[in-house]
């Protein structure tokens, strides 16, 4: 029974990461009908910007202020990156076939992954690009002698609990933005019909840019939360998490914000249980099996509404 709850705790911890990344996929898919392949790599860049922000300042003591500064810094860096990617790689292709944008997205993804693996161009003050070998994320918060809580034999690392709280706060904030603000209303209008939204005076381009910025910032937060709990980071680790987060978005119903959160948590927990009770070497295959099952049985996702295509 203890094992069961321990898996649940681990699954939720991984699931919040998937959920945060999935939000970016789902929002971008909502407004552009594009699978932003590079989103998983933005998440990776988020973790690395946190690493650089944390080491450039010459270390420093772990504290809440430093953690907040690094998290916000990484979110700003990735927000800018998301803006640049949208502006220069996707916007020029918006009226082309959808496949064209997908190929470009794969290109951007590979550029980030393998660009970060190149041997460093300059070494001072820190080597950049980081190169292929894994790096260790600095400790942001010091929990003293007892870094985890214990309930009836179930270990809950405090950093994971904090990460969950932060992730939930960000999700609530996003929920507020999407459903309660003028920007959110505009975003939903663009997602419903970009052409008509434009005719109604909504600045479609700006809304799409902002959607990318928002999604990328959330991915950066996910990167920081993940890296402070599992500190080994390398340029390729975004690929798999990104794909799994996409599966989470599809599971919850792509284009649906609460669905992405639920999908992420569900996928994380499922993965943890299957890997925990069978063989952990099948971990990466589970997500894809889930994807295929969802697409076969309920392609609109758990919370999505089936739409009939009009000809």
């Amino acid at each position: 029974m203890t094992e069961f709850f321990q898996h649940l705790v681990n699954g939720v911890s991984v699931g919040t990461i998937y959920a945060l990344i999935a939000l970016g996929y789902t929002m971008v898919y909502g407004v552009l009908k594009l699978i932003n392949f590079a989103h998983g790599d933005v998440y990776m860049v988020g973790a690395f910007s946190g690493y650089y922000l944390g080491t450039v300042g010459g270390g420093g003591q772990p504290s809440f202020i430093r953690a907040a500064y690094i998290t916000l810094g990484a979110m700003i860096v990735c927000g800018l990156l998301g803006y640049v990617i949208e502006r220069f790689a996707y916007r020029p292709l918006r009226d082309q076939a959808r496949l064209t944008s997908l190929i470009t997205a794969i290109g951007v993804s590979f550029l980030l992954e393998y660009g970060f693996q190149l041997t460093p161009w300059f070494r001072e003050p820190v080597p950049f690009p980081p190169g292929p070998s894994p790096r260790f994320f600095p400790t942001l918060l010091d929990f003293g002698p007892a870094p985890s809580l214990e309930f009836l034999g179930v270990t809950v690392p405090k950093i994971d609990a904090l990460g969950l709280v932060l992730a939930l706060a960000l999700m609530l904030l996003l929920q507020h933005i999407v459903y309660r603000t003028r920007f959110g209303t505009a975003m939903r209008a663009v997602s419903f019909d970009p052409q008509v939204a434009g005719l109604m005076g909504i600045p479609v381009n700006r809304i799409i840019s902002m959607t990318f910025v928002l999604g990328s910032a959330l991915a950066a937060a996910a990167g920081i939360i993940n890296a402070s709990s599992r500190p080994k980071i390398e340029p390729l680790f975004g690929l798999m998490s990104g794909l799994k987060a996409f599966v989470a978005a599809v599971l919850g119903g792509i284009g649906n914000v609460p669905g992405a959160m639920a999908g992420g948590l569900l996928l994380g927990v499922t993965e943890e249980y299957v890997a925990g009770y069978t063989s952990s070497s099948y971990r990466d295959a589970i997500a894809f099996a889930v994807l295929i099952l969802v697409l076969l049985l309920r392609p609109e996702g758990l919370f999505g509404r089936a739409t009939v295509e009009k000809v």
């Binding site: 790689a89 292709l93 190929i103 470009t104 794969i106 290109g107 951007v108 590979f110 660009g115 693996q117």
Partner: peptide, 15 residues
């Protein structure tokens, strides 16, 4: 640089 070249080639070609 191989994969980086592939990536740039894909993006440039699509644009």
């Amino acid at each position: 640089y191989r994969m980086v070249v592939y990536a740039l080639l894909l993006i440039a070609l699509m644009l």
